[in-house]
Simulated assay, not measured.
Amino acid sequence: MEKMRSPQEPTAAQTTELEKSGKLACTETKKVTLVDGKITVPIELARQAVALVKIDW
C-alpha cells in the first residue's frame, strides 16, 4: 500500500496570489432609482463569480 505524502508548501508568490484572489473587489458603485417601489440593479458577473450588493437608503 502506498502512503500519502504531504502537499508541498506554496511559494511566496503562490501565497500572495492566493491571498489576493480571496479578497473581495469593489468593481463599481452605482446610484439606482426607485420606480414604483422597485429598484433594478444591473450586474454582469464572470463565470462562477459571487456578488455582494449593499443597498443603503
Rank of each mutant, 00 (worst) to 15 (best):
W57Y: 10
M1F: 10
P10R: 09
V50I: 14
T15M: 14
K54L: 13
V53N: 05
P10H: 11
G22Q: 12
P42G: 04
R47T: 05
A13M: 14
S6A: 12
V32P: 01
K20R: 13
L52M: 14
A12I: 13
T27H: 12
E9H: 01
P7K: 07
A12Q: 13
R47I: 14
I55K: 02
R47Y: 10
R5T: 01
D56R: 13
K3N: 04
S21Q: 11
E17D: 14
T40S: 06
T27G: 01
S21K: 02
Q14G: 03
A46M: 13
M4H: 04
I43Y: 02
T40R: 01
P7I: 09
I43H: 00
T29W: 07
L45A: 12
K23M: 08
L34M: 06
V50L: 15
I55C: 07
T27N: 14
I55R: 03
E9W: 03
T40Y: 00
M1Q: 10
K30L: 09
L52I: 15
A49V: 08
D56Y: 12
D36Y: 01
Q8K: 09
S21V: 02
D56I: 14
V32D: 02
M4V: 08
E2G: 06
L18F: 10
V41N: 07
Q14P: 06
M1D: 10
A12T: 12
L18D: 06
P7H: 00
C26V: 15
A25G: 04
L24S: 11
L24G: 10
R5A: 07
A46R: 10
I55H: 00
V32F: 02
K3A: 06
T33W: 02
I43K: 02
L18H: 06
A25N: 14
Q8N: 01
A49Q: 14
A51M: 11
E28T: 12
T40V: 01
A13F: 13
T40P: 00
E44A: 15
T15K: 15
I55Q: 08
L34V: 05
K54T: 13
T16P: 01
L24F: 15
L34T: 03
